Lab assay of single mutants.
Amino acid sequence: EEDDHMEFCRVCKDGGELLCCDACPSSYHLHCLNPPLPEIPNGEWLCPRCTCP
């Protein structure tokens, strides 16, 4: 299965362990989110761009 998510964080543009949005190709480091997440959430996760009205 091919993964179309970005291979770098949308905020800092660095690679590493990234959290991928379930609705778009964006990826983020947990510490780059505002507010930062302490751990990878269970289940579906939507990035700030997808949850913003």
Rank of each mutant, 00 (worst) to 15 (best):
E39H: 14
F8E: 08
R10L: 09
C52L: 12
H31C: 04
H31P: 04
N34F: 13
F8Q: 07
N34S: 14
C52E: 14
E17Q: 12
C50E: 05
H31V: 05
D14R: 07
E2S: 09
C50H: 11
K13A: 12
G15N: 04
L33H: 01
C52Q: 08
R10Q: 08
L18I: 12
D4M: 15
S26P: 04
E44V: 08
S27R: 10
L33P: 03
A23T: 13
K13P: 00
D22T: 12
K13H: 05
G15A: 13
H5I: 11
F8P: 05
T51R: 10
H29P: 01
D14T: 07
P53G: 08
P38C: 02
C52K: 06
C9A: 01
C52S: 14
Y28A: 03
P25C: 14
F8Y: 12
E2W: 04
D4T: 15
G15H: 07
P36A: 14
E39Q: 11
M6A: 13
L46D: 02
C9W: 00
L30Y: 11
P48Y: 07
D14C: 05
I40E: 08
E39S: 14
M6V: 09
Y28E: 01
A23W: 10
P38K: 15
D4A: 07
P41T: 11
E1M: 01
C47L: 01
Y28K: 03
R10H: 10
P38D: 06
L37S: 12
E44P: 09
L18N: 00
C52W: 07
C52D: 15
E2P: 06
C21M: 00
E17L: 05
S26R: 08
L30R: 11
G16R: 03
H5Q: 10
C12L: 00
S27G: 07
V11W: 06
S26E: 12
E2V: 08
N34D: 05
E44L: 07
T51V: 09
C52R: 10
V11C: 05
K13C: 12
N34L: 11
S27M: 10
D3Y: 15
S27V: 14
V11E: 15
S26K: 09
H31F: 15
C12V: 01
N42I: 04
P35T: 07
L18A: 01
C21D: 01
C21I: 00
C47Y: 00
C21G: 01
A23I: 03
C20R: 05
E44Q: 13
E1L: 01
L33W: 02
D4F: 15
D3I: 15
C32I: 00
R49W: 09
C20G: 14
R49F: 12
F8G: 12
M6I: 12
C50P: 03
R10W: 06
E1P: 01
C24T: 03
